[in-house]
Design a protein around this nucleic acid. Structure first.
Lengths: 158, 158
DNA sequence: TATAACCTTGACGTTGGCGTTAAGGCGCAA
DNA sequence: TTGCGCCTTAACGCCAACGTCAAGGTTATA
């Protein structure tokens, strides 16, 4: 345990402020193993690193990217319903101005969904790129290991 | 209310079986407004349509696509941690066989994540296509409305 | 050294998303 | 008309992901 708080270490309140989550959430993540238990001051105060801050932000990005409640799904399904009703009552003899208004409304709703989906796809693609780079890095490391082995033991293996 | 169950109508048990959710879940979705209240038989039994079945399947697809718990996020973050440890102890002088095993393990984990992300992106892209087609449909309808107006009132407007 | 600001660990509350009895009605075949 | 399976609502239970006190310890600053 650290006796003194070092310059680059943060207390839970600062981490909370900088990540936008509550202190409760930080302790909760620690409890659930999402954050490794941080160091402590003598008195027991948690001391976080910049790495921890990054991790929290990462977790929140993932949550934002992947987490959708039934309430969110309801919005999407409701939009579908609006569309279905519109289609059902699409009577060419009805008031054109009304139709146009409904159509505009349906367009708005659909565009909102479209925007959200596009954003999520973009974020997902960034993750994909990161993972791909990581895999390539591993491949390079493997090659390095192969070469080390070949250089180190060419005579012994004969 | 329907007196008799018609040929194309389904009771809750059948819907549950065909959608893979429980009866409780179907009632729950209705309660939360995700499913419109279905018709009833005289005795009060729910009568669902094929449309309802589609809706339930749609809801589940969305849930599967978008829903990820902290437990799932923990898996991803844990994989990051494995990588960080690996990187930290990458000591060229250490046992090569060990390194290779760790590297293979890290590769496995990363590939698993990569696969999941790719699947989700693909599903998202399908949604994107659907929404895009919908928007184009709306555009066509708007044009039709424009033309109807032009055809119907060219003289009156002068 | 006192006091405000910050922190600690409980422990109970809340909302979402259902699972699980419980107690009883409905539908249909024999 | 009785039996059996399917259905109804009501109500309690459970886990996740926190929010919200409560009671008290720590640190920094005057």
């Amino acid at each position: 345990m650290a006796n003194e708080k070092q310059g680059d270490q943060l207390q839970i309140g600062e981490v909370a402020e900088r990540t936008g989550v509550t202190q409760r959430t930080l302790r909760f993540y620690e409890e659930k193993g999402l954050l490794r238990p941080p160091e402590r001051m003598e008195g027991g105060f948690r001391l976080y690193s910049e790495e921890d801050v990054k991790r929290v932000k990462h977790i929140r990005r993932l949550q934002d990217l992947l987490g959708v409640s039934l309430a969110g799904i309801k919005e999407m399904v409701d939009a579908d319903e609006v569309l279905r009703e519109l289609r059902a009552q699409f009577d060419p003899a009805a008031a054109i101005a009304d139709k146009r208004r409904q159509l505009n409304r349906a367009t708005e709703v659909t565009e909102a969904q479209y925007t959200i989906v596009k954003q999520k796809i973009e974020q997902m693609r960034q993750m994909e790129v990161q993972l791909d780079e990581r895999l390539k890095l591993f491949q390079r490391w493997k090659k390095e290991l192969d070469e080390m082995e070949r250089d180190a033991a060419p005579t012994r293996s004969q």
